[in-house]
């Protein structure tokens, strides 16, 4: 479904990503692992089109999207839940959700999807008229995921969804992700929490200093001591 080949990228300075390749098949939940600054966020920002890669290609559903605009990429069905949630603080929960489905492709189906999001996270339904900035961190994360679902993604990418959340909320969020995956949604999950990610991902890819260090099924990665080493930056 998603094929990333030989991707190299950076922010003005040296390369943050170097020659990274990665495939995601339809229906999979793939974990993208690695220590801080390994280049995980850079990779998904390239896929989302908010960062132009220096070399390499990204293909989605057989079409090249390497140089596509972010808005175009969302319309094609890749939606990112950014790190730190990035909700629109001075807008209601409902407005935030509606904005998730603002593309021309998504708008006709907004009403149905709103119901689906409210079923997934009933809490959001209660909070509908409230400003998003007044929600707790966990609620904001639910909102960020719900907002992304409003776009009707074929591939959902999440950047550190557990960051700064209480264990209870982390469980809720991951239960929702498993549920979405079980319904057939393809997910690329960027996480620092190794065990949590491997417990719900089929496969994992470990990045280390901008390069793919390891890749394999969750079981092999869990058994491989190098996985942990990559985390500690050894």
């Amino acid at each position: 479904m998603l094929e990333v080949a030989g991707l190299t990228a950076g922010y003005g300075g040296p390369n943050v990503l170097e020659d990274v390749s990665l495939d995601v098949e339809a229906g999979e939940l793939v974990g993208l692992l690695g220590a801080n600054n390994a280049g995980k966020s850079t990779l998904i920002n390239c896929i989302s089109g908010v960062l132009r890669p220096r070399a390499g290609s990204i293909r989605f559903l057989g079409e090249d999207i390497t140089r596509a605009k972010p808005s175009d990429i969302v319309s094609r069905g890749i939606v990112q839940v950014p790190e730190g949630r990035q909700v629109f603080p001075r807008m209601s929960v409902l407005d935030n959700l509606l904005l998730g489905g603002t593309t021309a492709v998504a708008r006709p189906r907004r009403a149905d999807r709103l119901e689906q999001v409210f079923t997934l996270f009933p809490r959001l339904k209660e909070r509908r008229p409230q400003y998003a900035g007044t929600l707790s961190g966990g609620e904001q994360q639910m909102l960020a995921i719900g907002r992304a679902m409003m776009g009707g993604p074929k591939l959902l990418m999440l950047d550190e969804p557990s960051l700064g959340l209480s264990p209870l909320f982390v469980q809720t969020i991951f239960r929702a992700l498993r549920e979405l995956n079980a319904q057939g949604l393809t997910i690329l999950l960027v996480e620092q929490n190794l065990n949590l990610t491997l417990s719900c991902a089929v496969r994992g890819v470990v990045l280390e200093r901008g390069q793919v260090a390891l890749a394999g099924t969750s079981a092999t990665l869990r058994a491989d001591p190098r996985t942990r080493q990559a985390y500690l930056g050894l």
Binding site: S71, V79, Q80, P82, R90, L99, T102, T103
Partner: peptide, 20 residues
Amino acid sequence: RRIRAVHQNPRAAALMGIDV
């Protein structure tokens, strides 16, 4: 709504498919 989104958080707006 899109204009307000661009004002409040342009990056997130772009990730929602808004052509900022």
